[in-house]
Design a protein around this nucleic acid. Sequence first.
DNA 1: TGTACATCAGTGAACGCGCGTTCACTGATGTAC
DNA 2: TGTACATCAGTGAACGCGCGTTCACTGATGTAC
Lengths: 235, 235
Amino acid sequence: MTAVARTPRRRRAQRGSGEQLRAEIIAAARELLAAAANADDVSIRAVADAVGVTSPSIYLHFADKNELLGAVVSEVFSELDAAMLAAGADADGPFERLRAFGLAYVVFAVAHPEQYRIATMDPCPQPDVDEVLASSAFENFNATVMECMQAGIFADGDPLPITLDLWAAAHGIASLMIAKPFLPWGDVKTTADRALCAAALGHAARALVGDGDVTAKQLTEWLAEQHRPSRSRKR
Amino acid sequence: MTAVARTPRRRRAQRGSGEQLRAEIIAAARELLAAAANADDVSIRAVADAVGVTSPSIYLHFADKNELLGAVVSEVFSELDAAMLAAGADADGPFERLRAFGLAYVVFAVAHPEQYRIATMDPCPQPDVDEVLASSAFENFNATVMECMQAGIFADGDPLPITLDLWAAAHGIASLMIAKPFLPWGDVKTTADRALCAAALGHAARALVGDGDVTAKQLTEWLAEQHRPSRSRKR
DNA sequence: TGTACATCAGTGAACGCGCGTTCACTGATGTAC
DNA sequence: TGTACATCAGTGAACGCGCGTTCACTGATGTAC
């Protein structure tokens, strides 16, 4: 009497429609990945089962599990790219676009925690995953940093260090929020915006004092000098 | 003729010296973990083998694998705590201590990548791991942020958001360096210092303009105003 | 229009593997008398 | 000082499990004549 509820057998695909099952497999893997704590917890069998197909069928569309995971992550990052571009589309100037990009990045990461974790923390990801990453988040940030330099918001020079830093700031907030959700983060957007603005303003402040190798010590002293009179008027 | 080189059987421990094997197990697990890409790649058997003991012996000292991993991470974070305190010991003022803390944090994380990854990215870590984390990095940062507030470097208020933000900045740099070592990071210390200073200075700049809820827009406008005359004197 | 045939998406069963963990045991060490 | 015994750190063999992947196959679909 053990009536095991089997997934209903799906209809055989039309001749030329191999792509359809491929897309369904990726979608199922994404969903399972989102629910799992770990990429290892999503098995080929589980993905096949979710689609309503046997596990060897997966290998008709992907060489191995790694390729499937890579495809999932690629898809997710394409969407991240789209989300960032959409968020930055009607920003008022490059600095505001930087903010919008960063915010969209963090919000997206928090909304897709497991996929984000795989893409950014797996030490041996698919090569093309890194390409996707480079072509979306990284390039979006970098182009806008250059605009900020042209606008005089950042000091002229190599945009790369600032881009990496802003990316790291967004990533730091996003990944800690994902991994330590019990910490008192407050509202995602507010916190992310605060952190991103701080990082960006820090670089902007550098431009204020002068070009090149200003030491942090000089900067703080300068800031402290500006600061003191405005707060208590003594000195 | 297959002379398998077996690990030499270790001498039986003295009666009261159960602690010694426990420490050896943790040390072996740390070493294997550092070499592995993933915590799942370190098996109980491998740890036992490295110590020169059979796998059931592990269970004489740890309830299960999770407890062993937790012990490893606790130990690593105790050392992180020590490294941070040592680095900040003779810093010149709270801001410099913040820098020293952040630098030590990133340097330590990059030097112990796998242990760091487990501690910060595993979504379901041992409860006491989080306690250790809270008692070291987090508390060190938080106390110093409060000192910075008293010194007028940061605007008065709740130190928590700034602490979380600085921690996220350090974590962002550290974890991206670990996960994407092929990116053009440059020197670890230089890059980490740049990022941390930017974040800290960003918060300091906020204090400059005024208390409370200054919008980022106001801040950039203010910065831009300060900025333009100093660079080209036009306007 | 009907029949024989090629195609190939998907199947079912099995493979070997390494894992975490359990369990009855052994035998050196320390202790009581 | 010698002997019997309790202790308990560590052993050896096995357990059940779920995994990724392979392989010979099936049978609906489309095509050629």
